[in-house]
Nucleic acid binder design. Sequence first.
DNA 1: CCTCTATGGCGAA
DNA 2: TCGCCCTAGAGGC
Length: 276
Amino acid sequence: MPEGHVIHRLARMLNEQFAGKTVAVSSPQGVFAGPAAALDGHELTRAHAWGKHLFIDFAGGLEHVVHIHLGLIGQFRFSAAGPEPLPGVVRLEISDGDRRAHLHGPQWCRLITDAETDAAVARLGADPLQPAGADRWESIAAKVQRSRRTVASLLMDQSLFAGVGNIYRAEVLFLHHIEPHTRGCDLDAATWQNIWDELRELMAAGERTGRIDTVREDHTPAAMGRPPRKDDHGGEVYVYRREGLDCHVCQHPITAEVLEGRNLFWCPSCQPERQR
DNA sequence: CCTCTATGGCGAA
DNA sequence: TCGCCCTAGAGGC
């Protein structure tokens, strides 16, 4: 259940566990068995990510990069080496004999070349988790500042904001008091910069912790005398999946609607429509 | 048991 | 805009 922070965290964990090692590669489920056999016994040189796309490089052949996209429900987990408890669902398993990583339910898991890797990354926009300067933000900023599309739509467009998903979208708009239907061209450059800076900070924290926590200390359930959230997606948030519940800041009920097929959440009181 | 939903993205209309 | 793909967990009966 991944936004970009999860993918970058996975790349880091894969590197910590396997980079530079000769590994066993298999596909207990069978769908990826051919490519897995071709990689089995080769060195895993490094894992890297751009947005929600994960790339695992192996030494050897022309096609030596495993390109993974987890989609909505995919998971990549680590556990001790040993017999696979769920052989029917594991698309890819990588093991060094001590620990193993196993991939479940990915949207994609394919073997590609370096050139195809470059092409896949080139289709993606600015990634808040890349080092400053290498993140493509300058050119993307110019585009979104001119756009007549809504800021909610722009933030979910992976060719503009690579790695941002439905939770970070909702939370960054709340934190900056922006009504989600505001057009990109109606936000000034400083506001767009604030959005970008916020995404970089929030997602870097998410990469470290493996959770999305956006709620400031003085608004936590404990500080506000509220019960902790029941709907636990793995972090404490202001608006995501809080439809009908009171806003942590102003107590106005949180609103939701479906926009372009995805649930959108915001506080109509903290995020009023702009007067222009 | 069943049904629903989900942090995503594609391709058919 | 809709249906569809993949899996797991929650909730209802």
